[in-house]
Write a protein that binds this DNA or RNA. Structure first.
Length: 821
RNA sequence: GCCGGGAUGGCGGAACUGGUAGACGCAGGGGACUUAAAAUCCCCCGGUGGUGACACUGUGCCGGUUCGACUCCGGCUCUCGGUACCA
């Protein structure tokens, strides 16, 4: 037995080498392997240069899950790769004067070294980098399939443009009117861009959220809001003195009879037309367009409007109602116009009050005492002042009015989504080339499968402005695959979210070079059982991935029945790593370098600390002292091993030995339970610390005691293996384990060891603890009461009282209810 | 506004389906060892009162259900995230 001190550096190197050589971390693809499969995945990193603490936390969590599942007897897939395309590479390229590819590959090299130093059990044979043609060729292939199916299309549209990034952005990438990357205000531009029809899947993406019981409610809620389904009706109002109509969408057709004016967005054609000969109105429209993108807190923005001097005809009553332009109406939602019912909508009410517009009440409550002179009444109720609809309840009225509109061809039932089609083209160089050729004769033509991949030239040097790809003649100039004449390649590339939308499925078939997915491997591994990553991807990445998974299903890459329609069964959104209460970030300068920590304390200490310091989904406050504490614990266990096999002089105590054995098994139970309950590693580690303390406090005085100590230490080391694998392996070796600790079987609870001859039964009077008595676990209420009466310190509380009721909770407590005699 | 979390010692956090609140760790205090320090080990550590066994009190606030509530119900306050003026 080794008496040497615990030296993480040499141990960790040694075991990493051994694991790598023995291939213990690889997923077994072989059919002979009858183990149940488990797919554990962490969000793959962008190769930015160095690992940060957020990465460390993410990957340590994932590794603990993967290793635990392996020890539970699962055939585990735990892959890693690189989300390697993207803007930072181009920015770095400009700064350093070398192509983004060079920078990216160097970073991958650097960071994979760092991941390996952490001892993460990845199946490196499946490593992918999205910037490699063998990866993105399938994305290109997929896109041509989507073009065939009409799910990908090119359209001139008003899009979000970011000047510094020199590209368009998806709606999801605009946050409060600024670019998600560089925080610069985004402005609108008309450009021909590529879109994918995510809106065709809106209902499915929304409905299937219900299946995601393994996802945090928060993320499900965010996706639901983002898809933003609302049901109502579209209604056509005739524009007075014209044959044009003004179409609006409303979720409250029941309030139609209360319309007293209309409001349109500043960008609405009717507003623009009205402004042609009205400079004042024109100026107002201008003002609206500026404010709408820059105003951060739109909810508190002052409601402003101006009359267009145009009337609309109410479809039912034929009355003329004025049309206004209002800054709170959004061109991008619905039809860019609303009917206004001030009596029953707060916003319309405020606006009507401000501009002195009519308020007409058409709904009242059951008591009929609604007063709209002070505030809008927005609840459902009973119709009044609505002619033939009077007396109907709101939900009936909605149907009746919609039906009326339909039969009079003035409107129809309609569902509206907030979700827009996904804009996937970017005017960037470092991305997947869009596999399309523009031909003067044939128009826009997809690159045929036999010509894929369209390889991105990797030697180009971005300079800041437009993409160098557009100037790269050998890339741009080509021939049309249809007519053979000279043609030009599309020089836009894909949004990098495209690559990250399907990588989880590609891992199942990482080395398949004949298809995007190998159907058999896909069926074997997918979907991901446990996905782990930051909550910042709640909408963007996770929504796109859910969508893309369905696209892959619908082009026939896998069977939705077998694999399922959701790519991620369970999702764990880990908290941030904080230093002094704020998120660690380079720009704030409050970072702790993982490599420094590993060098000082070893990877296992770093792993243990990040898992112990907070529950996975909560923020973790970094603490150097806490790291010391984690290191101390490992040292204590290291020293504890010396107890194994030792018999100390003194009298053997069979009772103490039995108690220790019970402690061992209750702790195996507790640790296992903590792992199973949302991977509460912090709780699991606490239980292991307790076990360690109990073992440390015990001295064996006979062979039986010796055996129990060994049993306990063995269980402890085995349970530590998923968390601190190098340490556990080394300890296992010192103890002469038959298998390497990380390959060992997870310890089982011996139920018989949990049985107690006697227990401390808590005695309460009026629910207040008054003492404990030592009894058999099966003690009857009467027996317990006898003992209580003979226990002076407890019995004194009963004196002068009458016992009303006695409750015995087996194995736990006895509660005596009394009242003064 | 709306949606989703939180709120427990000096701090991070435990507490199974309601059953001994504060596990485990950090910080702090005291002690042992040491010439000294570090490391290590032992003891104490919610508040108030008491020398003490102990008593009272205590899980954001108010109320309820219960023999018994951190846990369940109703009503609030504060706080953190997310967000859509969504018609």
């Amino acid at each position: 037995m080794s008496e040497e001190l615990y030296n993480p550096q040499s141990i960790e190197q040694k075991w990493q080498k051994l694991w790598q050589e023995s291939g213990v971390d690889a997923a077994n693809e072989g059919e002979g392997d009858k183990r149940e499969t488990y797919y554990c995945l962490e969000m793959f990193p962008y190769p930015s240069g160095n690992l940060h603490m957020g990465h460390v936390r993410n990957y340590c969590l994932g590794d603990a899950v993967a290793r635990y599942k392996r020890m539970q007897g699962f055939n585990v897939l735990h892959p890693i790769g690189w989300d390697a395309f993207g803007l930072p590479a181009e920015n770095a390229a400009i700064k350093h004067g070398r192509p983004p590819a060079e920078w990216t590959y160097a970073n991958i090299e650097q960071m994979s070294g760092q991941l390996k130093r952490l001892g993460l059990s990845y199946d490196w044979s499946r490593e992918i980098a999205t910037c490699k043609p063998e990866y993105y060729r399938w994305e290109q292939w997929m896109f041509t399939k989507l073009m065939e199916k009409g799910l990908a299309y090119r359209k001139e549209a008003e899009v979000n443009w970011c000047d510094p990034c020199h590209t368009v952005l998806a709606n999801e990438q605009v946050e409060d009117g600024v670019c998600w990357r560089c925080d610069t205000p985004v402005h609108k531009k008309n450009l021909a861009q590529w879109f994918i029809k995510i809106t065709d899947y809106a209902d499915e993406l929304l409905n299937d959220l219900e299946q995601l019981s393994g996802w945090p409610d928060k993320v499900v809620g965010m996706q639901r809001n983002w898809i933003g389904k609302s049901s109502g009706a579209e209604v056509s109002f005739q524009v007075e003195g014209s044959d044009e109509t003004l179409d609006i969408f409303t979720t409250r057709p029941d309030t139609l009879m209360g319309v007293t004016y209309m409001a349109v967005a500043a960008g609405h054609p009717l507003a623009i037309k009205a402004a042609e000969h009205n400079p004042e109105l024109s100026a107002f429209l201008e003002e609206c367009s500026v404010i709408s993108t820059k105003e951060a807190d739109v909810a508190t923005m002052e409601k402003k409007g101006m009359s267009l001097g145009v009337n609309a005809i109410h479809p039912v009553t034929g009355e003329a109602v004025p049309v206004w332009v209002a800054n709170f109406v959004l061109m991008s939602y619905g039809t860019g116009a609303v009917m206004s019912v001030p009596a029953h909508d707060e916003r319309d009410y405020d606006f009507a009050k401000k501009y002195d517009l009519n308020i007409k009440q058409v709904i009242t409550n059951a008591a009929g005492d609604v007063d709209v002179s002070e505030a809008a009444f927005t609840d459902a109720g009973v119709m009044i002042n609505s002619g033939e609809f009077d007396g109907l309840k709101s939900n009936k009225a909605k149907k009746a009015i919609t039906y009326w509109l339909n039969t009079h061809e003035k409107g129809e039932e309609r569902t509206q989504f907030r979700l827009r089609d996904w804009l996937v083209s970017r005017q960037r160089y470092w991305g997947t080339p869009i596999p399309v050729i523009h031909c003067e004769n044939c128009g826009t033509v997809a690159v045929p499968e036999s010509d894929l991949p369209v390889v991105l030239p990797e030697h180009l040097q971005p300079t800041g402005g437009a993409s160098p790809l557009a100037d790269c003649e050998e890339f741009v100039n080509t021939t049309c695959p249809t007519c053979g004449k000279d043609a030009k390649r599309e020089t836009d590339t894909f949004d990098t979210f495209m690559e990250s939308s399907w990588y989880m499925n590609r891992y199942t078939s990482a080395n398949c070079n004949t298809a995007m997915l190998d159907a058999k491997s896909m069926a074997k591994w997918a979907p991901v059982d446990q996905y782990i990553g930051g909550v910042e991807h709640a909408v963007l990445h996770l929504l796109y991935a859910r969508f893309y998974h369905r696209l892959m299903r619908d082009v026939g890459l896998f069977d939705g029945e077998k694999v399922g329609c959701e790519p991620f069964k369970n999702l764990l959104t880990q908290g941030m790593v904080l230093l002094d209460g704020t998120k660690m970030s380079k720009s704030k300068g409050n970072t702790v370098d993982p490599v420094t920590i590993i060098e000082k304390y070893g990877a296992d200490t770093a792993r243990l600390f990040t898992l112990f310091a907070a529950p996975p989904e909560r923020d973790l406050e970094w603490s150097d002292k806490g790291v010391e504490g984690a290191s101390r614990f490992l040292n204590r266990v290291w020293v504890l091993l010396d107890k194994v096999g030792k018999i100390y002089p003194g009298q053997a105590d069979a009772k103490a030995t039995k108690t220790l054995r019970r402690t061992i098994h209750t702790h195996i139970q507790r640790v296992t339970h903590a792992f199973e309950q949302g991977f509460a590693f912090n709780v699991a580690i606490a239980a292991m610390m307790e076990l360690s303390n109990a073992l440390n406090a015990f001295e064996a005085h006979d062979d039986e005691g010796k055996a129990v100590v060994e049993e306990g230490v063995t269980a402890l080391i085995t349970m530590l293996a998923p968390l601190v694998p190098h340490f556990a392996c080394e300890c296992g070796e010192r103890l002469g384990f038959a298998t390497v600790a990380v390959m060992a079987t997870w310890p089982e609870v011996d139920e018989s060891a949990l049985v107690q001859d006697e227990i401390n039964l808590v005695v309460q009077i009026q629910g207040k603890k008054r003492g404990e008595i030592v009894v058999s676990p099966n003690v009857s209420q009467d027996e317990a009461m006898d003992i209580v009466r003979n226990t002076e310190s407890i019995n004194k509380w009963l004196e002068g009282n009458q016992i009303v009721k006695v409750i015995l909770v087996k194995g736990r407590l006895l509660n005596i209810v009394v009242k003064p005699a």
